[in-house]
């Protein structure tokens, strides 16, 4: 089934919110949509799904991000550095740094989220990560005042920082981020998620 055309989605958005998508940012548009209580029902009457609209907004925002990033890169380039370096140095930096695995684990977790089917309700994988963080902290014996469960939960909203908190805690005791990565990989939760992974589309 084909996704509705952008103009159809934009017209639907205007009907629902009274705002033109082109006049507000994708971030604002997302917030407006989240405030509509019976959004799914209203969209259904227009033969549009929430996913269609969210995917469209996501695409608009991503294009905007790339446009701004490219412009920022050129500005830096004019001053000192080649555009190519804008995205690469973080990777290079972490590779030669004692905590180099932090970014790689963060990226790996984003990849894992990408590979894992979306959970049916709120929380899902994020909650799994938080629980896993707690388990790892128990194993490493890190005192809670240093990295509290609340702190993990607080940063857990984005997924990736959870791994970072876990690594930070692990570094203090195990002095090896890769050991923590091993814990994450061998986790029971990951095993459960594996069982839920369906066949390739």
């Amino acid at each position: 089934m084909h996704s509705p055309k952008p103009e159809v989605l934009e017209a639907a958005f205007h009907d629902l919110t009274g705002q033109h998508l082109k006049e507000i940012s994708p971030g604002e548009a997302t917030v407006l949509l989240e405030k509509i209580p019976d959004l799914d029902k209203q969209l259904q009457s227009k033969n549009i799904t929430r996913q269609d609209l969210e995917t469209h907004l996501n695409g608009v925002q991503k294009s905007l991000f790339r446009k701004i990033l490219d412009a920022g890169g050129k500005t830096v380039d004019v001053i000192t550095w080649p555009v190519r370096k804008i995205l690469w140095p973080p990777i290079k930096w972490y590779l030669k740094h004692p905590i180099r695995n932090t970014l790689l684990v963060a990226l790996a977790i984003v990849l894992l989220l990408y590979l894992t089917p979306a959970p049916p309700g709120p929380g899902g994988f994020r909650d799994d990560l938080i629980k896993q963080g707690e388990e790892i902290l128990k194993k490493t014996g890190v005192p809670t005042p240093q990295v509290s469960t609340e702190a993990i939960a607080k940063v857990g909203a984005t997924g990736a920082p959870v791994a970072e908190e876990v690594i930070k805690a692990g570094e203090q005791l195990l002095e090896s981020p890769s050991n923590i990565l091993e814990h994450i990989q061998k986790s029971k939760i990951l095993e459960e998620r594996m069982k839920k992974l369906g066949p390739l589309p």
């Binding site: 971030g27 701004i68 920022g72």
Partner: peptide, 17 residues
Amino acid sequence: VIRHSLLLSLSPTAASL
């Protein structure tokens, strides 16, 4: 630069960019 670009793309002024 990456973070500022992300934040700009989400800000209310992004529509005029």
